[in-house]
Each structure stands twice: as structure tokens, then as C-alpha cells.
Design a protein around this nucleic acid. Structure first.
Lengths: 196, 196
DNA sequence: TATAACGGAGTGAGCGTTCACTCCGGAGGA
DNA sequence: TCCTCCGGAGTGAACGCTCACTCCGTTATA
């Protein structure tokens, strides 16, 4: 897997991210990926077993990057409400600054690929490493706090993250021009939805 | 367009709904649609210019049906909060009872098809006919009421509908077993998010 | 019989994947 | 130092296959 760090390999993954985000998985032939990466078609198969594995690799890299970006914003000293809002705002800002990544992830999760991944993620209660989801989960389900409604996880999840995905989609579609104030308003709305 | 009512045509559209919902647009060949509808491949092209037009027709029919179903639940006498919650619950129940339709619509809106449609829909302020969106819009943006936060439409939309889409996806993925109580909880959460 | 509706083998374009080949940097013998 | 050789990264034409769509012979209808 150290192969993933070579220059060519990164070029392939970058091209895949860019093209899949704009054209969809089925809309981007491997030939185009190779062309865009300045690489021969065959080279793709030197690094990845097939197209699916390439997609999964790009997804894994994106998730890692996102987790890292969010982890920076962590300040566990804040009260629940403020911590939640800061994290939601960070999440939105990160996705707005990386629209290709958002679009790729949307493609990914709305395909047979992502369904399983999502399932794994949600069903595993104990996250292995210091995941970014940890702080979220602690706020949302920390037994001590009692600042959040006592409802099943998926309900809280939906109320907290559903609006985030929606609004970013609208922004990228040009239906609204988000700014810091509006993002703050949205995050507060999400909090109002889940707070006791 | 009256052709759309013939038996064969309805069979084709039904098969398309079922197959696209479960396999995705690119995953369902026209040959399979024809087979599943008990019809020759050529017949599809007797009713629809191409595969795209077929997809659009199925979408239009679904939307019409959904609007009709929701319109039945309308009781404009209720106060804003209760009206909103009833409508959200109706929407969720309708989609849960018609999972194929939900999955089809998800496919549709997450593809180049739907993007434009969504754009049209949101940008047109004045809806032509007595659309189901009307009552929603009246609650959310009726100048008189002042029961809902004074925020741009897309923000309110996201807070109101984002969680709905999320939770249905989770339900259909088997991550949660929704019941009337939980649906009510979710709808109340959505209201808490947008109410003043 | 004349006309319209239907069916499904056929067509060509486009896809993911393969594999026989090229190319090049460096190891090793002279 | 120079030359030969070699391993493996890199390549892209070719392959097998699937697809949306067409076309014309067949069947139903009037």
C-alpha cells in the first residue's frame, strides 16, 4: 500500500476524484482517467486491481483527509452546544472549500459502493481509532451530558447532518450563496433540532 | 401524451420504476426493462424517444402521485406547528410505504437528470397549480405567521427536509426500524429546527 | 384486405481489462 | 571507464462484451 504514495499513483487518484465528481462513476471511462492523469491506461491496473478498487482508494483517502481537517477544530473545553456548532460549521466549511470532494462522496454514498460502507460505519459502535466522529458521538450520546434528546442514534444523526448535506448541495447548485452567518444559522438550527 | 395511459406503456413504466430503484439507472439495460414488462425492446421506443425520456416520464408520474397523496392530508385549520408535523409525517409515511418510489427519486435527484429539475423547482417562486409544496411554502414563508425563523428558503428547506431524506435512507438500509412514535419525534425535531 | 401495433435479432459504438512490448536506470564484468 | 545486461515500471492496441437503439418481418385489429 506504500505504492499509493508514488507520484503517478497520486496523479491517477487526483484525476479520478476530479472526473468522477463531475461526471459520475459510470460517466468516466478509465481511458479518460488515464489521459487526464498523463498516464497510460495500463498503468492504472499496475496500482489498482480494477476500477472499483481505485474508487475505494480515493474514498479512503478523502475520508482520512476530512477527519484530519475536522480534528484540528476540536476544543473539548467548550460546552456541548458551542462544540457542536463549531464542528458543524467546520464540516460545512471544509466541504465548501473542497467541492470536488463533496461531490465525489455524494456519488460514492449514492452507489452500491457506499451503502455497505455506511452500514459498517453506523453499526460499529466503538470506533477503532481517535476518529473525528468520536467527539460528535460524545456530544450526541454522552451519557453524562443530557443536553441532547434521548432518541435513537439514526434520528439524532438525521437531524444533525441531514440539513448539512442538503444545504451544501443547494450551494453547489447555485441555489444559495452561503456565508459565515448563514452557516452559523444552519448549525444553530441543527442544534435546536436535537437539544432537549 | 395520452399514449402514456395504455396498458403496455404503464407496464414499461412500472418495470422501469422497479428496476431502476433497485439497480440504478446505469445498472438496468433496456432489454431487462422490456423483459420485465413482458414487452419487446422495440416497443419501448414506440412510446419514448429514448431511455432518458422514459426516466423523466416515470419521475413525472411519481411526483404527481406523491402530490396527490399529500394533498389528502391537508387540514389548513390546524396551527402551523401541527400542520407542519402532520405533513412531514405524511411525507415520511408515504415514502416508507412506497420504498421503490423513494429509491427511484433518490437515483433521479443524484444524477444529471435531477439537478436541473431541482433547480427549476426551487427557482420558480410561484408554483403554477395547487402544488403540494404550496401548503409547505405557506407555513414556511407565509408573511403573516411569524412562527418560522426569518432565514433564506434553502436554509429552512434543508432544516425541514434534510432529516427526512436521511432517516428514510437509514430505515431502508436497515439501520433503524421506524414507527409512528419515532416519525413523530423526527418531525418535531424538524419543527424545533425552524421555529422561532 | 389494409393498417397499425408489436417483437426481437441485429448493429455499431463504447466500455473495462489484458498482455506483449518498450524503455530506462543501475548492477556487474571487462 | 565503458559496455552489456537485466528487472520491472510503463504503455496502448486489441479483445470480448454489453449496451442503447434500429429495422423489418410478424401479428393483431378494423
Amino acid at each position: 500500500m506504500e505504492k499509493l504514495q508514488t507520484e503517478k499513483c497520486q496523479a491517477i487518484m487526483q484525476a479520478t476524484l476530479r472526473l468522477v465528481a463531475t461526471q459520475g462513476f459510470h460517466g468516466t471511462p478509465t481511458s479518460q482517467i488515464a489521459g487526464s492523469a498523463g498516464v497510460g491506461v495500463g498503468s492504472i491496473y499496475r496500482y489498482f486491481k480494477d476500477k472499483d478498487e481505485l474508487i475505494h482508494a480515493v474514498h479512503a483517502q478523502l475520508e482520512a483527509k476530512m477527519h484530519l481537517a475536522l480534528a484540528e477544530q476540536l476544543n473539548l473545553e467548550l460546552p456541548d452546544r458551542e462544540l457542536f456548532i463549531v464542528l458543524i460549521c467546520s464540516l460545512i466549511n471544509h466541504l465548501l472549500q473542497n467541492p470536488l470532494e463533496f461531490k465525489f462522496l455524494e456519488q460514492y454514498y449514492n452507489s452500491p459502493f457506499g451503502i455497505e460502507k455506511m452500514r459498517e460505519k453506523f453499526l460499529v459502535d466503538e470506533l477503532p481509532n481517535s476518529d473525528v466522529s468520536k467527539p460528535f458521538l460524545n456530544i450526541l450520546f454522552g451519557g453524562k451530558g443530557k443536553t441532547v434528546k434521548d432518541l435513537p442514534k439514526p434520528i439524532i444523526h438525521s437531524l444533525a447532518f441531514g440539513p448539512v448535506i442538503f444545504i451544501i448541495r443547494d450551494h453547489l447548485a447555485g441555489l444559495i450563496e452561503l456565508n459565515d452567518g448563514l452557516i452559523q444559522n444552519l448549525a444553530e438550527g441543527c442544534w435546536d433540532a436535537i437539544k432537549i
